[in-house]
Every structure is written in structure tokens, then in C-alpha cells.
Design a binder for these strands. Structure first.
Lengths: 200, 200
DNA sequence: GGTTCGATTGACTGGTCAGTCAACCAACCG
DNA sequence: CGGTTGGTTGACTGACCAGTCAATCGAACC
């Protein structure tokens, strides 16, 4: 079917340009022409590959979120203890940010934390991630490795909320972001949720 | 000076209408005429009291955020243990949501979690809240009531992130929201951050 | 009953942009 | 070559809406 792929994938080029522009200016204040310019492509071509400006963001989100979902499931299958599983989830998200901060900024700022406007469409997908994390907690409770007097759904929200807040802190320069900070963050996230602030 | 206050405060009327409309449609998709209609007031009057649509949201945010800051400081002075202090902070925010969910929805969705577009202006104010919470944690560490191997700034982000994520869950119907849920949430928030998920 | 002045009205304008579309081009094919 | 197909171009349009402003209202005061 796709016997003749163009030498450069313009569609990809547009998506990558969109990441940069959305990250820089935010979704609402980027014009479609900004994306086209950044991609070095004619205005109309954006509409050849995508039906609307929204769909560009949709695509970026879906691409990334499916990876996250896969990572959570992988963590659930791969690791032994629930603590390790949570660690793997936190690790994956932190690494995602380290690897492509602009994309993660767009995902979080424009979709995940914009549940009122854009994120609304994706609420079911987002919810699924919370549920997967809750399932990990629940199993931990059944095996006795986690206490049973905290609602798993609640724990899941706390855990995910903490992660996202951290990323937001990095995104907006509220907390330092270096390689060691990333490593520490992964550890802290797990320690905090599992052991709490009070000494044992 | 203000010897003759109009029988009904139109300015307040506009602000209250804005809360409802912003909560319903989101800031970006509400027209100034929507606010005027909801307030039962002429279009132009909005501009008599506010210099722009942005300023309406500004005002709503500032009103509320200053209360939050006061509550945090009050908690810091009032309570004895750092645990109680965190409990008071969580309690205040949860109560704020219970008392006026629409306003809190607007604050969180349109400002706090919209750090890229609108919230950018208010980042310094928002940051101040994180810092106050971090200070509570720090004192707890000094007194030995909290462990010292977790960065206070990090703990603060985790705690606040968890709270906000919870509210988001209520706002978007991801988790149940009843009076008992609110009460439980306050407790869970403190227990989770202080004791962690693992049994003691 | 006239004057003043702030509150109130809503029609209008200017600018912005998402999305359309007709034309252009280049590769391949018969 | 002439023709077909699909990627590519960018000028144009229609809708939308924030913010302006000149006109009106009405209370208080002389």
C-alpha cells in the first residue's frame, strides 16, 4: 500500500513543529500558521494531514498517552512488589520528561491539566491511567504490603497528582531540574507515598 | 467617600455571574456578553467595572488566593504539630471546595493549572503558597516530627499536588463527592503524606 | 425644574484566525 | 509526450468577539 513514502515525512515534521510551538506559546495562542512556519511547510498542508488544529494536539496526546498506559501495564506485570511497580510508573513519567520536556509540557499543560477545555475529550483515557494505578495499590493491599484503610482510588490520585505537580514545578521553574534532581525525584516520590513523612 | 452605595452591588453581581459562567464553559469559551447576560446587566457595564475580561478572572483569583494564604499562615500559627498544620491546610482547601465548588473549579482549572496561559501572571503568588507549606514541613523536620531526608520543597509539591488532584477528581466526576467523601479526604490526605501507604 | 455626574446601555468596529479551495507541481505510467 | 494522481501552495473568506463610545438614565442637590 504505502510503497512510495516521501523522502521526508511531512506529517511527522508538522507534529514535531507543533510540539515546539505549543510548548513555547501554549495551544490557544498558537496560530495554525505558526505551526506551518515552524515546520517549514505551507499553511494548507497542515490541513492536508489534520482535519483541524485540535486534531494535531489530539494526535500528540494519544501517541504519548498510549505509551504511558503501556508502561503502567508493563510495570504491573514486570515488577514484583507494589512499591516497585509504583516506582516504575514514576520512573517512566520522569524519564519521559527528561527525554522530551517540550512534549510532556504540552501533554500536561494543554491536555491533562486542561480538563475543562481540551482535556475533556480525553478524560476517559486519562481516567484509565488513574484506575490502573489504583489497581496496583489494591493488589498491594490484598497482599498486605500496603495498609488497607486508604481508598485505592484516593491513593492513586494522590500519587499521580504528586508526580504531575512535580513536573509542573520543573516546567515552570518552581523547583530545580537537573539530572540528580530527576533521580532524587523518582526516589522521593516512592518513599513519600509508601513511607510518609513521619519517621519510622 | 463611598457615602452612596447602590442598592445592589453590580460589580459583585458581575463577579458572581462570571464564576458561574467560567465554571460552566471555561474561561476561553465564555464571551463577555455571556457574563453580562448571566449577571442581567448590559454588555458595557462589565467594562465599567473591569478593564478587560482577564481582569475579571484576576479579581476572582486574587480574592480567593489571599484567603488561602491567610489560612495557611493561620494554620502555621494556630496548630501545634506540623501534622495538624498540614491537616488544617488540607481542611481549608477541601472546605473551600465544599462551600463554593464553582469558584474553586475556576481557580484551579483556569488559573492554578493553567500556568501556561493565564496562571503565568500569578505564578509568584502561587509559588508563595508552596513555599509556606514547605516551611511547615521544614519546621517539622527540625523538631524531629518529620524525617529529614526528604526535601521540604518536594514534600510541599507532593502534598499540594495531591490536594489539587483530588479536587480535580471531584470537579470532573472521577471520584465520588459526598459529605463523607470530603471528610474522609481530609483525613486521607494527612495520613497519606505523614504515614505513607505501607503499614507501620 | 434645571444642572451635574456617575451609572448604565447596546450598537458598532477593527482585528484576528480557522478552515477552504483552486491552482500548481512533480513523479510515474502508458 | 499527454494524462493521472496526490502532495503542496498560499490567498482568501466568513465568523467571531473583545473592547470602544456616544447616548441615555436617574439620583441628588441647588
Amino acid at each position: 500500500m504505502a510503497s512510495k513514502a516521501p523522502p521526508i515525512d511531512k506529517r511527522r515534521q508538522i507534529l514535531d513543529a507543533a510540539i515546539r510551538v505549543f510548548a513555547r506559546q501554549g495551544f490557544h495562542s498558537t496560530r495554525v500558521s505558526d505551526i506551518a512556519d515552524e515546520a517549514g511547510v505551507a499553511y494548507g498542508l497542515v490541513y492536508h494531514y489534520f482535519s483541524s488544529k485540535d486534531e494535531v494536539l489530539n494526535e500528540l496526546f494519544s501517541e504519548r498517552w498510549s505509551l504511558l498506559m503501556a508502561a503502567i501495564e508493563e510495570a504491573d506485570r514486570g515488577a514484583d512488589s507494589p512499591r516497585e511497580k509504583l516506582g516504575a510508573v514514576a520512573g517512566f513519567i520522569v524519564e519521559s520528561y527528561r527525554h522530551d520536556p517540550e512534549l510532556m509540557k504540552v501533554i500536561i499543560v494543554e491536555v491533562t491539566r486542561a480538563a475543562n477545555s481540551f482535556g475533556r475529550t480525553h478524560l476517559p483515557e486519562i481516567r484509565r491511567a488513574y484506575e490502573s494505578i489504583a489497581r496496583i495499590v489494591e493488589e498491594g493491599q490484598k497482599s498486605g504490603e500496603f495498609r488497607s484503610d486508604i481508598d485505592p482510588a484516593f491513593a492513586s490520585m494522590s500519587f499521580y497528582g504528586a508526580i504531575e505537580q512535580l513536573l509542573s514545578g520543573w516546567i515552570f521553574d518552581l523547583i530545580p531540574a537537573s539530572d540528580t534532581d530527576y533521580e532524587q525525584a523518582k526516589e522521593f516520590l516512592v518513599t513519600t507515598i509508601c513511607e510518609g513523612l513521619e519517621p519510622r
